[in-house]
Amino acid sequence: MHNIVPLLLPLEGDTSWPPSAASFNSRPLFPGLGIDWVNNHMMQAVIGALLVIAIWLIFSHRQTVVPGKRQFLGEMAYNLVRNSIGKEILGSEFRPFMPYLVAIISFILVNNLFGELFLFMFPTFSKIGYAYGLALMSWLLYNAVGIKKYGFGHYMKKMTLPDGVPVGLWILIIPLEFISNFVTRPITLALRLFANLFAGHLVIMVFVIGGTMLIESGTLFYAAAGGVSILFSFAIFALELLVGCLQAYIFTVLTAQYVSSAIAEEH
């Protein structure tokens, strides 16, 4: 039974009981070469990015007016993002943002599905640095778009001063709005993605590692409970599949939402 843990949790740093934040530590891929930043989780993210590029290249390769099956599938996936996120939230100005939205939803989706894919079994965004990186890109995007549309001064005024606040309260309200729009927004964006995947993966580790320990305990009753626990971890994997898709969608919707609020006219 000793091979269940490496099969179900191959990329974890530490598989001792109880699972903790240390279980999410990365391992350097080439130890001793001075390039310890090339670790297994970073390599997984790179593989995810290459996979996304490959998938969209295959979809868009040799397009025809009457789409074949392959092109039809690609257009369906693209239309889903365009209609339910782009047009719905950004209105008529959705077109320039579509490449970013499609890229980010496919990248997050692929990396979240790695959490349920054999050989990887680790959602990349359960390490918070990767989620911060994505949120930083969205932050740069919506601020750049707002500054480009309104100019720096007008954009800052629009983002930090709501209408109808008396002058005496400005000194209290301006820092509050500044923190709200430029600090808590991107941080909650990253934390939402990270926390869902981190918690889900931690639950999986509890079931898999705990179940293995129960099976190896030698008592028949405990071993049966451990078997049920391993089986139940597959139900959690199914739940994580749902959570992964949902969080990819939500991250993209919120990015579009922030862009939309940065370019929206004051009312």
């Binding site: 939230i89 509050l176 808590t184 927004r185 919120l254 939402q257």
Partner: peptide
């Protein structure tokens, strides 16, 4: 502003106010 936008604005304003002044 649509519903999602309002919800996000409310939550991020509350967090910002409590983080900043608290």
């Amino acid at each position: 502003m649509n519903d999602q936008g309002q919800g996000i604005t409310v939550v991020s304003l509350l967090l910002a106010g409590l983080l900043l002044y608290g």
